[in-house]
Design a protein around this nucleic acid. Structure first.
Lengths: 145, 145
DNA sequence: ATTATAGGTAAGTTATATTGACATATTATA
DNA sequence: TATAATATGTCAATATAACTTACCTATAAT
């Protein structure tokens, strides 16, 4: 049987450290823009998801973020104050609230994303198609644990 | 010129979400053990680094964690109370303090790591050598910005 | 002698999240 | 129709991890 070096504890530890650093750096590049609007990491994540999933419901947002209602509501209230999100009731099931970024919200997202994506963009640009595809594949497997 | 689909904004957004989820899941599997010892994520990170870099100095720990001295000191004090770390002065430059996990500390790390590594281990086991190597390569590029 | 480095500490504050309890409106189901 | 389940909101208290500002000692380097 083949020795799989990357399954050894030292390599796993190394990978775990890299996952931590990769996350931290990916979410810190845009800090200046967040400061400009007096928001933080939690707001950035919500804005990011709203940009990806337009009209997402509260409960789906909660499931993606894995935080409590109370936590999410604090953030949403800040975004309402900033006047960058709007709500629309579901036409069939009026209990459901759909959340959207408005025009101002989309602009602020673009400001944040412009800084944030650079790191990822450059890393992918510097990689082959296969490397990128495999990165995505393994990351998916880690997530789906 | 080739169309690089994965350099488009939608794909970059998707990858950023995955980086976030991958990090969160990787650092949440071991929560039960952390609770058992009444410590948190910040402690887990320090213990992880101490396990990787035996005898690391305070300033190098700070550089790796990118937190303030005050933040790190709170965590180290907890680890001292738990009786799982020891310090040794550098023999040449006595200003420098080297930090080590003691035997109890190493055991607690192994408890944490046993749960934490499963997710990564299984993902890598389910991947080809090339996929794993490419995952690591791209992650490195993301980190080195 | 002066400056730089390594580390520590105190007080106050902020960001993000939690638990637990309770409330309302709406929809689904027995 | 009565009851249960779902989607959402809110209050109060607490926890965790971080921050800023400021100041301190000890040691090493210039």
């Amino acid at each position: 049987m083949k020795e799989l070096l990357y399954l050894k504890d030292d390599q796993l530890k190394d990978l775990i450290e890299k996952i931590f650093v990769g996350y931290r750096e990916t979410f810190s590049d845009s800090k200046k823009i967040l400061d400009k609007y007096s928001i933080g990491l939690a707001h950035q994540k919500v804005i990011h998801l709203l940009s990806m999933y337009e009209g997402i419901s509260i409960s789906k947002l909660l499931a993606k973020l894995k935080v409590t209602k109370q936590s999410l509501n604090r953030v949403l209230k800040d975004l309402i104050k900033l006047e960058i999100i709007i709500f629309k009731k579901d036409e069939i099931d009026t209990r459901i609230k759909h959340v959207y970024l408005n025009e101002k919200g989309k602009k602020i997202f673009e400001e944040i994303f412009l800084l944030q994506k650079k790191r990822i963009y450059n890393a992918l640009l510097d990689s082959s198609s296969e490397e990128v595809i495999n990165f995505d594949k393994v990351l998916k497997k880690i997530i789906n644990g």
